[in-house]
Design a protein around this nucleic acid. Structure first.
Lengths: 336, 336
DNA sequence: TTGTAGGCGTTATCAG
DNA sequence: CTGATAACGCCTACAA
C-alpha cells in the first residue's frame, strides 16, 4: 500500500507538505514541489486510506441509505420497484462528490446507532419515515438526514417529497370528470402523516368537492406484493358497485388490473383504473396505465444535493422540496 | 464516542484485556473480569470503530457490490428489475455475518482499484462480467471475488450461475412441442461467453434437434429499456413469419408482449411468447407469462456464502454453483 | 516554505 | 491472567 509517507520520501519532502498539497492547501508550497508531488502521486498510484482519514477527522464520507424493517418481516431491501429507481441516481451523485454509499437495513434504533458509530457515518437517507418511536430516535442524532417521501419534518432534517395531496386530488377528479362516482381507493396501509394519507386526503376532497359521498367500504388497504394485489383485483371484479379505482402505486395498479382481467373484467370498459408514480410498468399493461407522474431520478438528485449542502455547511434556504406531479393520460380510464 | 479505553477505565483493566474479551480470546481472562467488561460495554453502549479496526488489521468488513458502467452511458445502478432482486438478499446475509455493503459504480479499472484501496475492501461482487480488459484487471486483484451470472472463470474467483443453456433449450423445446417452428430469439446483445450466449446456444440446439433450420433474421438483439422492447413487439407484430418468441428476460418479454398487443396482435392466439427469470411481472401481464424460473434470493444467498467462505478461509470444495432452472407454464404459449 | 510530533481507536506482541 | 507499547495512515498544531 502506497502511503503519504512513500510519496513524501520519493519527492524528498515531509508528510505534511504532501498532505497539504493533496488538500489543496497549496498557499505555502512552491509550485515546483506541488508538481513534483502530484507526479509522484500519479506514478506511485497513491490513493488515500479512508479509514485513516476517518479516524483522524471524524468524517468518513460514508453515507448510509437506510431501510427500516419491522423486526419480524423477512422482506428484501428493495420491495417496490419504484423505491429502487433512485438508488442509482443517488449513488452517482454521491460518488461525483467524493462520498460512498452504504446500504443498510436496520431493525431497531440500536441497530442504527451502532451502524452510525461503526463508521462515523456522515449522513443518512431514509424513505417513508413515520412519526413513531423510530423517528423520535432520528431527531436525536447529530447527523444530517434527508427524508424522502416522509411527512414528518424537523428543523434538523431536510425533506424531499411530492405533491401527494395534489396527486390524489388530480387522479380522483380526473375519474370524476370521466363520469365516475363509485371510485375505490386502493393503497398500502394508510398511516398518519404518511405519503398515502396525503393522497387519500386528495381523494376525499375531490369526492367532497363533487358532492360524492365517501364510502369507507371502497377503501382497500393491503400489502404491495403481487399475490395480494392480484387477489384484490379478483375481489373487486366480483362487485358491481365500483366503476373506477384510484391506486397509490403503479405496481399496485398493475396487480389489480391483472386480477380484474384474469377475472374476466375489461379495463377500462368495465372498470377504469389510475395509478401513481409512472414507472416503466405503466407501458407494459394493456391498456397502458393512466397515472400520476413523478420524476424519480430528480428526486434522488435533489435528495443528494440536500445532503451535500448540509454536509458542506452550505447555507440552506429551504429545508423542503416538493416536486410537482402531473397526470399522464393513457388508456386505463374511460368515460361513462 | 465511547472507546475501548473508556470501558477499560470503568472496569479498571487495560485496553488489551477489553479487546481480548471483545474478540472472545477469553482463555486467559477471569470469568469475573469478563462479565464486568461485558456489563460495561452494554452500559456505556460501546460500539467498535470500524475505521480503527480497518486501519490496524487490513480487513475492513466492507464488501463492494460493483456495477461496471461504460464510461459514456448514463444508466442508473439498477436497470433490470431482476438485478435488484437479490441485492436485498445479499445485504441481509452480509449483515448477519458482520459485513457491510457498499454500492459502487466504476467506469474504469483505475476507479475500481482506487475504491478497493480507499476502504481496504474485503471482497467484491460482480454481475455479468465478460472476458474483456476489465476482467483481466480483476484477476490481478488479491481480493475474493464472487462472479454472478458470468461465464468467465478463474481459479481466484467463485461463480454463481444458472443453467442458462438448459433454460434456453427447455424454453425452445417447449415452444417446438407446442407446434412452433418459426421461433424468434430476442435478447440484449449476445456477447461471447455471456449468459445470453448460453441461452442462445440452448435455443440453437433445440432447433437443431428438431431439424428446424436456424434463421438468423429471427434473432433480435436490443437494449432492455421499455421503449425499445415495445418497439420490438410492434415490429414483430407486422411480420407473419413468426409464431413464437423466446425472450431471455421477463422484462423484455413483457415489453414485447405489450408491443404486440398494442399493435393488435393477440398473445398467445397469434403469437406465443416465453420469458426468462420468473420475476413478479410475469403475473401482471395478461395472459400471464410462461417463463423459465430461477431463484434470485437463493442466488444472492449462495453468492454471499461463497464470499464469506473465501473471507474466512473456509476450505471451498467447488468454486462454482450452477442453480437449477425449471419451466413455469402459464398462459402465454399455445398449441398450433 | 517546510518539518516535527502527537494522537485518532484498535490490535498484536511480548513482557510481567 | 493482565498490562505496556508500538504500529496502522493520516491530519493538524506548532515550530523552524
Amino acid at each position: 500500500m502506497i502511503t503519504i509517507k512513500d510519496i513524501a520520501q520519493k519527492v524528498g519532502v515531509s508528510c505534511t507538505t504532501v498532505s497539504n498539497v493533496i488538500h489543496g492547501k497549496t498557499g505555502r508550497v512552491s509550485a515546483e514541489t506541488i508538481s513534483l508531488i502530484n507526479e509522484a502521486i500519479d506514478e506511485l498510484g497513491y490513493v488515500p486510506n479512508m479509514s485513516a482519514r476517518s479516524l483522524v477527522s471524524s468524517s468518513s464520507k460514508v453515507i448510509g441509505m437506510i431501510s427500516h424493517l419491522a423486526p419480524n418481516k423477512n422482506e428484501s431491501f428493495i420491495e417496490d420497484p419504484f423505491h429502487s429507481a433512485f438508488i442509482g441516481s443517488i449513488e452517482k451523485i454521491l460518488r461525483e462528490n467524493g462520498y460512498y454509499l452504504m446500504l443498510r437495513t436496520v431493525e431497531t434504533t440500536a441497530d442504527l446507532l451502532a451502524f452510525l458509530r461503526n463508521w462515523n457515518v456522515d449522513g443518512l437517507f431514509f424513505t417513508g419515515v413515520f412519526e413513531d418511536e423510530f423517528f423520535e430516535a432520528l431527531i436525536g442524532l447529530n447527523v444530517p438526514i434527508v427524508l424522502i417521501d416522509s411527512y414528518v419534518t424537523h428543523p434538523n432534517m431536510c425533506n424531499v417529497g411530492l405533491e401527494d395531496y395534489k396527486g390524489g386530488y388530480l387522479a380522483t377528479r380526473y375519474l370524476i370528470e370521466h363520469g365516475h362516482k363509485d371510485i375505490a381507493f386502493a393503497s398500502p396501509t394508510i398511516r398518519e402523516r404518511g405519503v398515502v394519507s396525503e393522497r387519500f386526503l386528495g381523494y376525499r376532497n375531490a369526492l367532497d368537492e363533487s358532492s360524492i359521498p365517501f364510502r369507507p367500504e371502497l377503501v382497500f388497504q393491503q400489502e404491495l406484493d403481487i399475490a395480494t394485489t392480484l387477489a384484490l383485483g379478483c375481489n373487486i371484479a366480483k362487485r358491481n358497485d365500483i366503476t373506477a379505482i384510484f391506486t397509490t402505486a403503479d405496481i399496485l395498479a398493475a396487480g389489480v388490473m391483472a386480477g380484474l382481467q384474469q377475472s374476466g373484467r375489461k379495463v377500462p370498459d368495465d372498470i377504469s383504473i389510475i395509478g401513481f408514480d409512472d414507472i416503466n410498468i405503466c407501458h407494459l399493461t394493456s391498456p397502458q396505465l393512466t397515472t400520476i407522474h413523478q420524476d424519480a431520478p430528480l428526486k434522488g438528485k435533489l435528495a443528494v444535493n440536500f445532503l451535500i449542502d448540509q454536509l458542506e455547511q452550505t447555507p440552506i434556504k429551504d429545508r423542503e422540496i416538493i416536486l410537482p406531479i402531473h397526470l399522464v393520460e393513457r388508456g386505463s380510464v374511460r368515460y361513462i
